[in-house]
Design a protein around this nucleic acid. Structure first.
Length: 805
RNA sequence: GCUGGUGUGGCGGAAUGGCAGACGCAUCAGACUCAAAAUCUGACGUGGGCAACCACGUGCGGGUUCAAGUCCCGCCACCAGCACCA
C-alpha cells in the first residue's frame, strides 16, 4: 500500500527542487518559439494575498506549464506594482518609511505566491518603486514631454477630500473616490496632463487587430466614445461673432428652436455689456460650479437654465431668430460647449423645452405610424423620414445627415466633425509615494526637463509624508531638494513636486520583463523584438478603462518613436470572474466572509487550492467559495495518489481504455487553451473513475494522467513521477499527443427516436451504413411503430429519428 | 436610459441543433468497522406506477426544424459597465 499523501512535505520539497534547478528561469533563446504569458502584477497590500489572486495566476500558470512541455520558450514573470496610497497611508499612521512597508509587504506576498507553486521566473522580478525601474518610467515621461504629449494645465480637477489628492476621471466612481469612498469635489489646480486623446482613433481602430474578449473591446470603445457629426456656425444677431455648435444630428437643423451654451461659455463674458441679465447668468454659473459631479448627476432629471437677455442667434438654414440659453446640461468640456436644441428629436432638449415652454418643430416623421412629439421626443434614426425641412424632405435620416453636411460645407457655415468622450489623462498626484516628475520650473525658461543622464530622479527622504490641505505634495516642504539651478539658464528654479499616478509604472512593466536588468535601455531591441507582443494577458475587468487603456496608449507612443516593435502590446486579453464569499457576497472584512489562502494551503495544500479554483466554475464568471468544494478537490487528488495501488506493468494503454485516453488528452489540451479549466478537470475525474471501476490502471495510462494533471497540480504529480521512476521531471517531459482517429469509439450507443422523442438506445458499429442502422432501429422499437412512417433520419453515430403520423 | 452578460436538479455547474443534467458537492443506501470517521460501491430532476414504462421538465410567451437549453421574434428578472457627451 502507498503511504498517505502528505502535502506539507511534498509541496515544500518540490518548491525547493524547482528553485535549485532553476526550473522556470527563462533564457532569451531567440531560436525557440516563444510564448509570453502575463498576469497583472499585484499591488503588495498589507493584507497579503486574497483568494481572488490565485484564480488568474493559476489559469495562466497552467497554460505556461503546458506550453513549456510543448517546446515553447515561455516567459511567465511576476513583479510588484508597489507605489500607491495605502502604503503611504500605512506609513503615515505607523511612522515607518513607505520603502520599508513595501519591502515587508513584498516579502510576504512573495512567500505566499511561492507556497502556491507558480512557475514564475523570479529572476525577472520587478518592482515599480525600484529607482532602477522608475528611471525608465521617468524616461518615458520625458519622451512624452518632448513630444508635446505631456503638458501642464490649470484645470478643475477631481479632488478627493479624504486622500487629499487629484484623481483621474477614471478614478471617480459615482462622484466618490474609487479607493476610499469619500466625496470628490472640484478644485482648480495646475496639473500635468497626458494627451491620450491624440491616440483616441488608434486606440479604437487597432482593437480590430487584437484578440480581446468582446466585452473588453466594447467598454474601451464606449469609454473612448467616438461620435461623428458636424460643427455648425450660428450667427448672432447684429454681431460679428458666430456661435459654433457640435451636433450628431445635422439633419434636424430645421428643427432647432433655441440654443444652449454651457454656463462657462466665453460668449457670456465677451458680451457682458450688452447682456441685460448678466447678474442672473453669473448667479447661475456660480451655482453650477458649486455643484459636485455627484450632485449634477443626481439632479440630472430636473433641467435648469437661464435665457440670455440681449443676444439672439440666427438659424443659418432658414434665417429664423432663436433665443440662447445657458444650462449646466451642456458641458464646456465636450464639443464646442454650445448646442443647437432640437426639442422634437432629442430627449434632453425635449425636457428642457417642456420645462421652459419653448417651441418645438417636428422635422422627422415616423416611416409608418403617427409620432406625437408632445408625448416624447422622436429619436429613432433608423426609421425616420425628414419633413418640414426644405431640401431634405422625404430623405431618410442617414441620407439627410450626409446631404446637410454637404450643404453646410458648400455654404461655408459648417463642417464634418468627429468628437470623443475620452479626456486627457490627469497625471499629477500630490503625494509622496510615487515617481517624481522629472521637470524643473524656471521663471525664465518655463518647464525644463531634467537631463536624461540624471535619471533616475530619486525620491528624497522626507520627514513627513502627510498630504496637505493646500493641495501641495509633501515634497514641496523639501526645500533643499526643490530649489535647484535651471539646467537651461542656470538661474534659480524649482523642481516639480507632484508625483506620478500609480498607473505610470504599470503602463510599461511588461516591456521590462523582457530584459529586466538592462541599464542602457528599458529593454534591449533584441529582447523586445523576440518577446513582443505579450501573447496572452489576463486581468480584471476593472482595469479595462484604466490600466489597459493607459498602457496601450504608452505602447503606441513608444511604437511611434521606434522604441517597441509592435503597434499593440497585448495580442490576447482575457478576464477572470471574482471569487465571492460562501454567502455569494463580495468578500470583505466587514461581511466576515474572507477566506485566507494561507489557511487553505496549510490544511489542504496548494495543489488542492489550485485545482479547486480552476474547478469552481466558468473562468470568466464570478463564483462563490465553498469549503465542501475544496474538500472534493482534495479527495480527487487523493484518488489520483492511490492509483499507485492498482498499477499494472504495461507501459502502454490497455485496449479498453485507449479511446478514452485519447479523448481525454484531446479534451484537456483544448480546454486548457480555452479557459475551460473546469471541464478539463472534470474529464480527468471521469478518467480516474473508470480506473477505479476496473480497479486497474497501466503505468502508461498513469504516466499520461500525471502529465495532464501536472499544470493544475504540479507538486503531487512531480512526487508521483518520482515514485514511479519515470525519469527526469514532469516539467521537463513532453506534453502527451493524441491520435484523432483513436478518439472515436468503434462501436457507439445511439438513440432511437420517434418524432424526436427517445424510445430506445442501441449499439452500432460507428461506420455502419444508414439502411442497416435504420432497419436495426425499427426492430428495436417495432412494437411502437403503429402509424405511417413519413421520414427516416439517421445522423451518423448520433441518432435515428423515425417521423410518424 | 444605453451597452455587454447571465438565467438549467437541493447546491456549484456540463452539453459542435441530435439521448438535458457530464464532473463535483450535499443527501440516502450497501460494504468494511465493536462503533464512528475515512474509504470503496450504488441510488439521486418532478409526478404517476410493484414493474417494464408513461407524462412533464433548461426564466416567460410565440416561431423555425424530423429534432431547440442551443437558432429567430417578443417579454421578464438579476449582475456588471457607462450615463445630461448634443
Amino acid at each position: 500500500m502507498s503511504e498517505m499523501y502528505n502535502h506539507k512535505v511534498v509541496e515544500k520539497e518540490w518548491q525547493k527542487v524547482w528553485d535549485d534547478e532553476k526550473a522556470f528561469v527563462v533564457e532569451n533563446d531567440f531560436t525557440k518559439p516563444k510564448f509570453y504569458a502575463l498576469v497583472e502584477f499585484p499591488y503588495p497590500s498589507g493584507q497579503g494575498l486574497h483568494v481572488g489572486h490565485p484564480r488568474p495566476y493559476t489559469a495562466l500558470d497552467i497554460v505556461a506549464r503546458k506550453r513549456r512541455m510543448q517546446g515553447y520558450n515561455v516567459l511567465y514573470p511576476m513583479g510588484w506594482d508597489a507605489f500607491g496610497l495605502p502604503t503611504e497611508n500605512y506609513a503615515i499612521k505607523n511612522k515607518i518609511h513607505p520603502k520599508i512597508v513595501t519591502k515587508n509587504n513584498v516579502t510576504r506576498f512573495k512567500e505566499q505566491l511561492h507556497s502556491l507553486g507558480y512557475s514564475f521566473d523570479w529572476e525577472r522580478e520587478i518592482n515599480t518603486t525600484d529607482p532602477e525601474y522608475y528611471k525608465w518610467t521617468q524616461w518615458i515621461f520625458l519622451k512624452l514631454f518632448k513630444a508635446g504629449l505631456a503638458y501642464k494645465k490649470e484645470m478643475p480637477i477631481n479632488w478627493c477630500t479624504e486622500c487629499k489628492v487629484g484623481l483621474a476621471n477614471e478614478e471617480v466612481v459615482n462622484g466618490v473616490c474609487e479607493r476610499c469612498g469619500a466625496p470628490v469635489v472640484r478644485k482648480v489646480k495646475s496639473e500635468w496632463m497626458l494627451k491620450i486623446t491624440e491616440y483616441a482613433d488608434k486606440l479604437i481602430n487597432d482593437l480590430d487587430g487584437v484578440d480581446y474578449i468582446e466585452k473588453v473591446k466594447v467598454s474601451q470603445k464606449n469609454w473612448i466614445g467616438r461620435s461623428e457629426g458636424g460643427e455648425v456656425d450660428f450667427s448672432i444677431k447684429d454681431k460679428e461673432d458666430k456661435l459654433r455648435i457640435y451636433t450628431t444630428r445635422p439633419d434636424t437643423l430645421f428643427g432647432a428652436t433655441y440654443m444652449v451654451v454651457s454656463p462657462e461659455h466665453p460668449i457670456i463674458d465677451k458680451y457682458k455689456d450688452e447682456i441685460k441679465n448678466y447678474d442672473a447668468l453669473m448667479e447661475y454659473r456660480e451655482m453650477a460650479s458649486r455643484k459636485s459631479d455627484f450632485e449634477r448627476t443626481e439632479l440630472a432629471k430636473d433641467k435648469t437654465g437661464v435665457c440670455i437677455d440681449g443676444l439672439t442667434a440666427i438659424n443659418p438654414v432658414n434665417g429664423k431668430e432663436i433665443p440662447i440659453w445657458i444650462s449646466d446640461y451642456v458641458l464646456m468640456s465636450y464639443g464646442t460647449g454650445a448646442i443647437m436644441a432640437v426639442p422634437a428629436h432629442d430627449d434632453r432638449d425635449w425636457e428642457f423645452a417642456k420645462k421652459f415652454n419653448l417651441p418645438m418643430i417636428q422635422v422627422v416623421a415616423g416611416k409608418d405610424g403617427e409620432v406625437d412629439i408632445n408625448e416624447a421626443a422622436f429619436t429613432d434614426v433608423a426609421t425616420g423620414v425628414l419633413i418640414n425641412s426644405d431640401f431634405l424632405n422625404g430623405l431618410e435620416v442617414k441620407d439627410a445627415k450626409v446631404k446637410m453636411v454637404e450643404y453646410l460645407e458648400e455654404k461655408g457655415i459648417g463642417t464634418k466633425k468627429v468628437n470623443f468622450k475620452l479626456r486627457d489623462w490627469v497625471f499629477s498626484r500630490q503625494r509622496y509615494w510615487g515617481e517624481p516628475i522629472p521637470i524643473i520650473e524656471c521663471e525664465k525658461c518655463g518647464y525644463v526637463p531634467v537631463d536624461e543622464s540624471e535619471l533616475p530622479l530619486e525620491l528624497p527622504e522626507v520627514e513627513s509624508y502627510m498630504p496637505t490641505d493646500s493641495g501641495e505634495s509633501p515634497l514641496a516642504a523639501m526645500t533643499d531638494w526643490v530649489n535647484v539651478k535651471c539646467p537651461c539658464c542656470g538661474g534659480p528654479a524649482k523642481r516639480e513636486t507632484d508625483t506620478m499616478p500609480q498607473w505610470a509604472g504599470s503602463s510599461w512593466y511588461f516591456l521590462r520583463y523582457t530584459d529586466p536588468k538592462n541599464t542602457e535601455a528599458l529593454a534591449s531591441k533584441e529582447a523586445l523584438n523576440y518577446w513582443l507582443p505579450v501573447d496572452w494577458y489576463n486581468g480584471g475587468m476593472e482595469h479595462t478603462t484604466l490600466h489597459l487603456l493607459y498602457s496601450r496608449f504608452w505602447h503606441k507612443f513608444l511604437y511611434d518613436n521606434g522604441v517597441v516593435p509592435t503597434k499593440e502590446p497585448y495580442q490576447k486579453r482575457t478576464s477572470h470572474g471574482m471569487i465571492l464569499g460562501e454567502n455569494g457576497e463580495k468578500m470583505s472584512k466587514s461581511r466576515g466572509n474572507v477566506v485566507n489562502p494561507d489557511d487553505i494551503v496549510r490544511e489542504y495544500g496548494a495543489d488542492t487550492l489550485r485545482t479547486y479554483e480552476m474547478f469552481i466554475g466558468a473562468f470568466d464568471l464570478s463564483a462563490s467559495w465553498s469549503e465542501d468544494g475544496v474538500k472534493g478537490c482534495r479527495r480527487f487528488l487523493e484518488r489520483v495518489w492511490k492509483l499507485q495501488d492498482m498499477l499494472t506493468d504495461d507501459m502502454g494503454y490497455s485496449k479498453d481504455m485507449e479511446t478514452k485516453m485519447h479523448q481525454t488528452i484531446k479534451k484537456v489540451s483544448n480546454d486548457f487553451e480555452n479557459l475551460k479549466y473546469n471541464t478539463a478537470i472534470a474529464a480527468m475525474m471521469a478518467l480516474i473513475n473508470d480506473f477505479y471501476k476496473k480497479n486497474s490502471v497501466t503505468k502508461g495510462e498513469f504516466k499520461t494522467l500525471i502529465t495532464l494533471l501536472n499544470p493544475v497540480a504540479p507538486h503531487i504529480t512531480e512526487e508521483l513521477w518520482k515514485i514511479m521512476d519515470f525519469g527526469g521531471r514532469v516539467y521537463q517531459t513532453t506534453w502527451p499527443e493524441y491520435d484523432e482517429a483513436k478518439t472515436v469509439e468503434s462501436t457507439v450507443e445511439i438513440a432511437v427516436q420517434i418524432n424526436g422523442k427517445t424510445k430506445a438506445t442501441m449499439m452500432i458499429e460507428k461506420d455502419a451504413d444508414k439502411d442497416s442502422v435504420i432497419a436495426k432501429a425499427k426492430e428495436e422499437i417495432a412494437d411502437k411503430l403503429t402509424g405511417n412512417i413519413i421520414k427516416e433520419i439517421y445522423v451518423p453515430g448520433r441518432i435515428v429519428n423515425i417521423v410518424m403520423k
